[in-house]
């Protein structure tokens, strides 16, 4: 057969090995237009996504920065200062409370799945299936459930506690999955070493496996924290929207039953009322900064994790 090389510098006839009549069957692919078009498409898509990202970041930054005033950080919320400080404190309280519930349960469940359970038992399959289901449930459904169960059935009312419990269930699958991955990443030789020294299973897990898995688990906790910070739909019917910090000093533990507006809920109220657009920009910026800080913390941890292994 005859083969023409596409490059004009070397255009010449070459007789190919096997004698068959497929002369001219193949075209030189070189960098054909379709390859260039595909590459262009991929680059354009990446560019558009990045531009959209930069647009939203830039927009929030440009409008949020000038709107940040000292008034916004006043300790007490009034309709005059529209302070976001109580909401910020409530956000931290809410996130802390829900993680207080979700982390021990989630990590415990992960330890059970990785270290204790028999592989392939029906209980394990059920746990995994339900955890996956929880992960897919939209936050508004969590909100509805929280309203029906914690708020109405348990008579906790629209409160910090109802909200925190709702969020705890919502982030539970995240904590479980990341902890499980972190535990699975711990080499088996660690466990064998500890068992070889005569340590029991519990001691092995607590002293040996858990510390090595800690950075991974913490990464999952930070991820959950981010989810708590940004949540609205699950909180609006469980924690309510009273813009004040629950009075722990006066009421003690009963302050848990006070309604508490978090930052994201605050932002939603401001935006939907439409009277305080400047303050909404500022709140958006604070939310963005919180998430960025959390992400930076998580990625610093992952880097350390990689270095350790």
């Amino acid at each position: 057969m005859t083969w023409y090389v596409s490059n004009p510098a070397t255009l010449r006839k070459v007789t190919l090995g096997p004698a068959s009549d497929d002369s001219g069957r193949f075209e030189a692919p070189a960098h054909t237009t379709s390859a260039l078009a595909l590459r262009g498409l991929v680059y354009v898509a990446a560019f558009v996504v990045m531009m959209a990202f930069l647009l939203i970041m830039g927009y929030v930054l440009a409008n949020g920065l000038p709107a940040l005033t000292p008034d916004l950080f006043a300790w007490e919320y009034t309709s005059a200062n529209v302070s976001l400080m109580p909401a910020l404190v409530n956000t931290l309280l809410m996130a802390f409370l829900s993680l207080l519930l979700a982390v021990p349960i989630g990590v415990g469940a992960a330890i059970y799945l990785v270290e204790y359970a028999k592989r392939g038992s029906r209980f394990v399959a059920l746990v995994r299936m339900t955890a996956e289901t929880l992960q897919g449930i939209p936050s508004i459904i969590y909100g509805l459930f929280g309203l029906l169960f914690f708020v109405s059935m348990l008579h906790w009312g629209l409160s910090l506690l109802s909200g925190a419990c709702t969020l705890a269930i919502m982030v539970l699958p995240i904590v479980m999955r990341t902890s499980e991955e972190a535990l699975l990443a711990v080499p088996d030789s660690y466990r064998q070493g500890s068992f070889g020294l005569g340590a029991g299973r519990l001691r092995t897990v607590l002293r040996c496996v858990l510390p090595s898995a800690l950075p991974g688990i913490t990464g999952g906790v930070i991820l959950s924290l981010g989810r708590c910070v940004g949540e609205v739909a699950a909180l609006i019917f469980t924690a309510g929207s009273i813009a004040a910090i629950p009075d722990f000093a006066g009421q003690g533990i009963f302050a848990l039953f006070d309604s508490a507006r978090t930052l994201a809920v605050h932002m939603y109220v401001l935006a939907s009322e439409g009277f305080h657009i400047q303050e909404a920009y500022a709140t958006a910026l604070v939310l963005l900064v919180l998430v960025a800080l959390l992400n930076a913390g998580a990625s610093a941890l992952t880097k350390r994790l990689r270095k350790d292994n």
Partner: peptide, 26 residues
């Protein structure tokens, strides 16, 4: 060891309970 096993199994069961509760209440 026995207590730990039971407690950990109970934490694992929480996700089952949560899904069950959500279904039932909804």
């Amino acid at each position: 060891e026995g207590v730990a096993h039971v407690v950990l199994a109970a934490t694992a069961a929480v996700s089952i309970a949560a899904v069950a509760l959500i279904c039932v209440f909804l």
